[in-house]
Write a protein that binds this DNA or RNA. Structure first.
Length: 925
RNA sequence: GGGGGAGUGGCGGAAUUGGCAGACGCGCAUGACUUAGGAUCAUGUCUCUCACGAGGUAAGGGUUCAAGUCCCUUCUUCCCCA
């Protein structure tokens, strides 16, 4: 046995990787004679190490790109790095290393790890978003948008830390305090850069031309949040106009109060002297809350009466005006008319503050209730009541003008000059400013007279200065005199813009830079774009459904309208390609993979104290401790496995699982986070989480590759999970993949093949392999990678025994192996190449071969089982010739013992024949 | 609070349009390989039943010749967003 050639991945994998690279096997070049396929997978952030989640996302995408290539497409499958962002700055602060140095070191390391996957990435097309040759064009796009009215300056709330004199990202704020010093963070209005995201709202709601998953389309649709309705202008008692947007103008007569955002400009004027103290105190509280906290619905809505009143423009009724922080100033008009009887939130607010409600829509067969009798809002369709001349008008539950009541009221508002029909969007403009160092600078200067000037193209890129001090107080770019103080185009002193761009800006166009990463005449070479665009298949996680994927669609539409694709379009048309709609969307097909979750996190423990009831701990104190040394008697202690709402699951040192519920008002103590915490806070620190470096909960793919080889890890990633779902990591069944590849290796090395085999066995093996060609092809088309690998294993099963028994002859063996190895090539590229080229001596490279042709005749079965059912239950099976006729099948079934017995001499009520590869007869008695 | 998924053996998971539930694996059991076995091979492995058979896809109800798949109610759970 020792002299047998055993499969050892290390001895072949890196050698093949080097050879493929040297031979340029995966170089993708424009070739108008072939159909193209641009396969794109979301690029990684260079956090330091590739984790198993990257393998899970990328290796199936790679396998599919390889499959497309074997099917005759010219495939582009590039890779790069989304390299700007906060973690690099954090590393700089914590370790005193420059963000650029940290980032490039990580990139270097991750390139090596990515190569170890054996993916078909074309490395000559790599892009790095923090490289000046990349961000030069990010800046160029910014300028283009600015010059065409798509970029503007506006005000927005930021998290401001007085102690650090800087703006913080949401994730740097924990429970209202900054994560570095634990000092308070407040909300502050600042002037910042925006893109006119809402410009394409309606177009982005149209998904007809793209094949994207339904959940993503729904999420984007909700995110954009188009609502049809009307603007209605109320008046304050002082006569100031007070405009609100409503989707329900048909309920205008039921508006019994109004609610404004605390920041609304009319609030000071509306506020009565009696209410002034309460209003001002409420406004101060609101300023301390983040937008997220303000919107969080805790049931009891807070709010304060201003003491002022407004006049309802249709009824003339005088109604009170309140302020509440759930109404946001930068949303809609910053105020709402409240109809408690027909809106859930307004109803809750009215009941919480003792405000009146009035029913103005009466559903059919429903009583007309008074304020006191209304126990919940009425959301159904009905007829208008209590609405003057409009009583009886049908409100059919539709939105906008399709609703007769809404249409009638809008017409009335227009006639009175107090309102107009309007469409409102939940979507707000894209705030792209970041008050951070590690991002692309904005190529603008502020002149002394307050005007803004963009730098000429020749001066791009504005490079980030290298000699900055990170981690101090204030903005490093403002503190850098040489960067901050500059001159304008006329040589006058000016201040450079110190905001940098949101990294979503960088990732909105990276798929274009892959086309020609070194090209200097434009963001991309139009010759390349003409051939490759758009992206045909984009793969990545659902977490990007509403942010990145919507930004990149917006970006693409803006570029299209600004003529950036014009040259590419001309070139494509010159090659006879139909370009209708081609440049409207960046990615034609999108598919999402799920997430690989980590196992238990090691190193953090919890001690919970309280009372135990029925085995469950109701804790009034939960403490995070470094070790379980001194556990008080009666406490539950262990590692945190899981958290849902306020329920924790602990894994005790005794192996038991404990359930802990935090009681109302119970305290949570986490050493790193001072002050009172909630169970939610534990999430940041302990929970079973997404695998990512920052959470310190990592299965290292390098170790797996060292132990099993890249092919095994690739195949396992594809085999062990439903790709669209993901799941908790577990390497239990990797052994099955190891056995499979060992078997294939041994099969390929079979030494003593007979010259002539057993024809029946050969035919059976051929049939099976042709069946799996069809199944694997289908699986790849559907991104169903686990069934593809399962079918490949069946291929092994079909060959293993007959070959060992000497029933497969030399010629048949070669043919069968040629099919199996080509089918395996996308999944396990190294072993497939080794066996194909070196062991069997077929023409290099297996990756440049055609996908095996499916022959239906070869796949066909001669004999199939006929399933005989009585009343839908299987009662018998007989072997019949494939393609049996309905009459013959029924005749066969009628002979069946069960059928005869069940009929008991009578005739069947009904006989159903189901044709197909496996025919069935159902006899109903 | 809003939105989107998902519930199938001990485990991961299969199952176009409704058409033999449990493919392919893991694990486990028994046996073989003259010792051992984290190797390999063979057989078995949804549950109950000696068996004939019966039941079974979170729970309950419905449609159908036929339901994991369609409809209604309930429960559990994950993710995203605010």
């Amino acid at each position: 046995m020792n002299d047998r050639n055993t499969y050892s991945p290390d001895s072949i994998e890196s050698a093949w990787q080097q050879r493929w690279e040297a031979d340029g096997v995966y170089r993708s070049k424009v070739d108008w004679s072939k159909p193209k396929h641009y396969a794109l997978t979301m690029l990684p952030y260079p956090s330091g190490d590739l984790h198993i989640g990257h393998w899970f996302a990328m290796t199936p995408s790679d396998a599919r790109a390889r499959f497309m290539r074997m099917r005759g497409y010219n495939v582009l499958f590039p890779m790069g790095f989304d390299a700007f962002g906060l973690p690099a700055e954090n590393a700089a602060v914590q370790r005193g290393i420059h963000p650029a140095e940290w980032t490039y070191k990580n990139i270097e390391r991750m390139r090596g790890q990515l190569r170890s996957m054996g993916a078909m990435f074309d490395w000559e097309r790599e892009m790095v978003s923090c490289d000046p040759i990349y961000y030069k064009w990010t800046q160029w796009f910014f300028k283009l948008f600015y010059e065409n009215g798509l970029a503007y300056r506006g005000e927005a709330m930021v998290n401001w830390s007085d102690a650090l004199q800087t703006v913080l990202a949401n994730e740097q704020v924990i429970d209202g305090k900054d994560e570095r010093l634990g000092q308070p963070v407040i909300q502050k209005l600042m002037t910042q850069w925006f893109f006119k995201y809402t410009r394409y709202s309606d177009e982005m709601l149209d998904f007809d031309s793209i094949d994207w998953p339904e959940p993503v389309r729904i999420m984007q649709t909700n995110w954009i949040g188009r609502s049809e309705g009307a603007y209605v202008t109320f008046k304050t008692e002082a006569g100031d106009p007070l405009e609100v947007f409503t989707t329900r103008p048909d309920t205008l007569w039921g508006a019994t109060f109004m609610v404004l955002a605390p920041e609304h400009p009319l609030v000071p004027k509306l506020t009565s002297d009696a209410q002034r103290a309460a209003v001002e105190s409420y406004m101060a509280d609101a300023a301390r809350k983040t937008e997220l906290e303000r919107q969080a619905d805790d049931g009891a809505k807070t709010g304060v009466f201003t003491g002022g009143y407004a006049i309802n423009p249709v009824s003339g009724e005088r109604i009170p005006v309140w302020i509440a922080d759930y109404v946001l100033i930068n949303y809609g008009t910053g105020g709402i008319m409240a109809v408690g009887a027909h809106d859930t939130r307004d109803f809750a607010f009215a009941r919480a503050h003792g405000l009146p409600v009035r029913m103005v829509i009466q559903p059919e067969n429903f009583p007309l209730l008074t304020d006191a009798d209304l126990h919940e809002p009425i959301l159904e369709a009905g007829r208008m009541v209590n609405s003057g001349a409009f009583d009886g008008t049908l409100s059919n539950g539709e939105k906008g003008r399709k609703n007769p009541a809404i249409a009638a009221v809008i017409d009335h508002l227009v006639a009175l000059g107090v309102g107009k029909e309007a469409v409102n969007y939940r979507l707000r403009d894209w705030l792209i400013s970041r008050q951070r160092y590690w991002g692309s600078p904005i190529p603008a200067v502020h002149r002394a007279d307050g005007t803004i000037e963009m730098l000429p193209d020749g001066q791009l890129p504005v490079e980030l200065p290298q000699d900055v001090k990170m981690g101090g107080v204030g903005n490093p770019l403002k503190n850098h005199a040489g960067f901050y103080h500059t001159t304008d185009s006329t040589g006058q002193p000016a201040l450079r813009e110190t905001d940098t761009m949101d990294t979503f800006m960088c990732s909105s166009w990276y798929h274009l830079r892959y086309l020609s990463p070194k090209y200097d005449g434009a963001p991309f070479d139009p010759e390349e774009a003409a051939y490759w665009l758009p992206v045909d298949t984009y793969t990545g996680g659902t977490e990007h459904a509403t942010m990145h994927l919507l930004y990149t669609r917006w970006f693409n539409k803006a570029l299209r309208d600004l003529g950036v694709f014009d040259r590419a379009r001309q070139i494509a048309e010159a090659h006879g390609r139909d370009t209708a709609g081609v440049f409207d969307e960046p990615m034609r097909q999108l598919r999402n993979q799920g997430q690989i979750l980590g196992g238990q996190r090691i190193g953090n423990f919890i001690v919970a104290t309280g009372h135990i009831d029925n085995g469950k701990m109701f804790a009034n104190r939960i403490e995070v401790v470094p070790a379980l040394d001194d556990v008080p008697a009666g406490a539950y202690a262990g590692e945190l496995m899981k958290r849902t709402e306020n329920l924790l699951t602990l894994h005790g040192t005794d192996g038991q699982t404990y359930t802990v519920e935090l009681v109302e008002g119970g305290e949570v103590i986490i050493p790193n986070i001072p002050g009172p915490n909630t169970v939610n806070q534990l999430k940041h620190h302990l929970e079973v989480e997404r695998m990512s470096k920052s959470r310190g909960n990592v299965v290292n793919p390098d170790d797996l590759v060292r132990e099993y080889g890249a092919d095994t890890v690739r195949a396992y990633m594809m085999f062990a999970f439903d790709w669209s779902k993901g799941g908790p990591w577990d390497n239990q069944q990797i052994q099955g993949v190891v056995r499979w590849l060992n078997d294939v290796w041994d099969i390929a090395h079979t030494a003593d093949l007979p010259e002539v085999g057993d024809p029946a066995a050969e035919r059976q093996a051929e049939r099976k392999l042709h069946q799996i060609i069809a199944r694997i092809t289908k699986s790849f088309e559907l991104f169903s990678f686990n069934t593809a690998v399962a079918a490949l294993m069946e291929g092994r099963n079909a060959l293993k025994t007959p070959i060992r028994e000497g029933k497969i002859g030399r010629a048949a063996f070669r043919e069968l192996m040629s099919i199996l190895l080509r089918l395996m090539a996308p999944v396990t590229p190294h072993i497939a190449e080794e066996l194909w080229t070196t062991v069997l001596g077929m023409p290099y490279s297996v990756h440049q071969q055609d996908w095996p042709a499916y022959d239906e005749a070869k796949a066909a079965e001669d004999i199939v089982p006929l399933v005989i059912m009585v009343n839908g239950r299987v009662r018998g099976k007989v072997e019949v010739a494939a393609g049996i006729s309905e009459a013959d099948a029924i005749a066969e079934a009628m002979k069946d013992e069960w059928v005869v017995k069940s009929l008991n001499g009578g005739t069947p009520k009904k006989v159903i024949f189901i044709d197909g590869k496996e025919p069935k007869v159902n006899v109903v008695v």
